[in-house]
């Protein structure tokens, strides 16, 4: 499960991230470091697939105007 999740994210990073960023015009505008996908990968490594994915989603959803706590640190 852990490996599937990590590979899925890698596939996203390699094949989907670029088209997505080009289409929506968000090339290199990420406010977080590391990026959400890299962060989720790391979180999955450390906490396992389920909790890691939750952490990743939590961070993705904090990337909006109403978020108070931008998480910039590593997992």
């Amino acid at each position: 499960m852990k490996h599937i999740a990590i590979h899925a994210i890698t596939i996203y990073q390699l094949f989907l991230a670029f088209p997505l960023k080009t289409i929506t015009g968000t090339q290199s505008v990420c406010r977080f470091s590391p990026t959400c996908s890299a962060y989720a990968k790391e979180a999955i490594q450390i906490h396992g697939a389920w909790k890691g994915l939750c952490l990743g989603m939590q961070r993705l959803f904090s990337c909006q105007p109403f978020s108070k706590n931008p998480r910039m640190q590593n997992a």
């Binding site: 929506t24 968000t26 990420c30 406010r31 470091s33 993705l60 990337c63 909006q64 105007p65």
Partner: peptide, 24 residues
């Protein structure tokens, strides 16, 4: 790192508040 980055954003008038979700 976070503090310094935020300071840099402020200095250069970058508004990181918008985020990527609205774009999605």
């Amino acid at each position: 790192i976070q503090e310094e980055t935020m300071r840099l954003y402020k200095e250069h008038g970058v508004n990181p508040a918008a985020g990527c979700l609205p774009v999605l």
